[in-house]
Amino acid sequence: MAILSIQSHVAYGHVGNAAITFPLQRLGREVWAVHTVMFAAHAGYGPPMGPVFSAQTIRDVVSGLEQMQVLPRCKAILSGYLGDADLGAAVLDAVATVKQANPSALYCCDPVMGDVAPGIYVRDNIPAFMKERAIPAADIATPNVFELTLLTGIAVTDIASALAGCRALLALGPKLILLTSLEGDQTPQGHIEMLVVTQQAAWLVSTPKLDLNPAPNGAGDLTAALFLAFYLENRQADAALARTAAAVHAVFGATQAAGTRELALLDAQDDILHPRQLFQARIVS
């Protein structure tokens, strides 16, 4: 089972492809990582140093995979941080190319645009690209609460508004929405939640919120990738949600124990595969 991942990469730390490749490989998934940028480290350490690759570079790499005739083995395409809408167009070209080779392949779009504390941290043309082109092309979208509001205009304050926002996003084209970083009025104190919504049902999972200061970068990248990998096994959204919550919580626990600002992926590798603490996804709609 191969996943084509098109997103950023760093030499030091764990964001983008550097956050998702090892965990997916530890789960036995083959990862074809195509980098949109190659930085020394993420912006949390200061202005990123390294090249931003062109849209043509992305197209050339995917064309090479096509010529090797391996794309029928690709079960999904995952996209994350995009430096510019031109790179996004190259991602959508890759999605079309893969789906031509394997019509059952899924496209999972992590619409990375910002978060509550920093606000929007992408170029001005990215939000419109996400709403008008990327989300309609996606089978799965994995926004955080800030990004869901940015895409739909619906402020998320509780389960009802979260469901409304996710259903508004479903109306744009995806078949499934994974909403992360949910802390609404009904969230148990000291917890954080994730919500999965399809046209048929919705499930919620709650996990203890660990004190991580500063919060590690790359958590959203990891969450989207793990959910996609688990969902591909049997396409059961509730089971994938519960497994994702357990694996991410295990990584956060290892990160807290290590006292590092980077995700402790090596320390948590066995728990990613077999988490010691499990969580139940309950149906809410």
Rank of each mutant, 00 (worst) to 15 (best):
A137E: 03
P214R: 06
L195W: 09
T97F: 02
G153C: 07
L163F: 12
V98M: 00
W203P: 10
H191W: 07
A141Q: 02
T180Q: 09
D110A: 07
P127F: 07
V145L: 03
P143M: 04
S104K: 13
P143K: 06
L210P: 04
Q199K: 11
N102V: 05
A90S: 12
A134P: 00
Q200E: 15
G184T: 09
P118E: 05
S206I: 10
R123I: 02
A89S: 10
N213H: 12
P143C: 07
V156I: 15
L92W: 03
L150E: 15
Q199N: 13
L179V: 11
R167E: 14
L163C: 12
L172Y: 02
A164C: 09
A128E: 15
L210S: 01
L151I: 05
C108R: 06
G153M: 07
P103D: 01
T207N: 13
I140W: 03
S181Q: 07
W203A: 11
R133C: 08
I154Q: 15
G114V: 08
L179K: 07
K99E: 00
L172H: 11
V156R: 05
A89H: 13
D158W: 07
L176C: 13
D93L: 01
G114P: 05
L204K: 11
I140F: 08
I126F: 09
C108S: 11
F129D: 04
P118T: 05
R123M: 08
A117I: 12
P127A: 07
L163H: 14
K131E: 13
L176H: 06
T207A: 10
K99H: 00
G165N: 10
L212W: 04
T97E: 04
P127E: 04
P143Q: 10
A138C: 02
E193D: 14
A215G: 07
F129A: 01
T142C: 10
I120D: 05
P118N: 04
E132Q: 14
S161Y: 05
L178C: 10
I177Y: 08
T142L: 00
P174R: 04
L87W: 00
I177D: 11
N125T: 14
Y107K: 05
P118L: 03
L212V: 05
M130L: 15
S181P: 14
A128R: 13
I159V: 14
N102G: 07
V197K: 09
A160P: 09
K99T: 00
Q189L: 12
L182V: 12
G190Y: 00
C108E: 09
I135P: 10
H191S: 15
D124S: 15
L210F: 01
A201L: 06
A94H: 03
L179F: 08
A117F: 08
L172A: 14
G190M: 00
P103R: 04
M113W: 08
E193H: 07
G190D: 02
A101I: 04
D124M: 05
M113S: 06
D211N: 12
T149S: 14
I154P: 02
P143T: 05
P188A: 10
L176W: 04
L106M: 11
A105K: 06
N144L: 03
T152M: 04
A171Q: 12
M130V: 05
A201I: 06
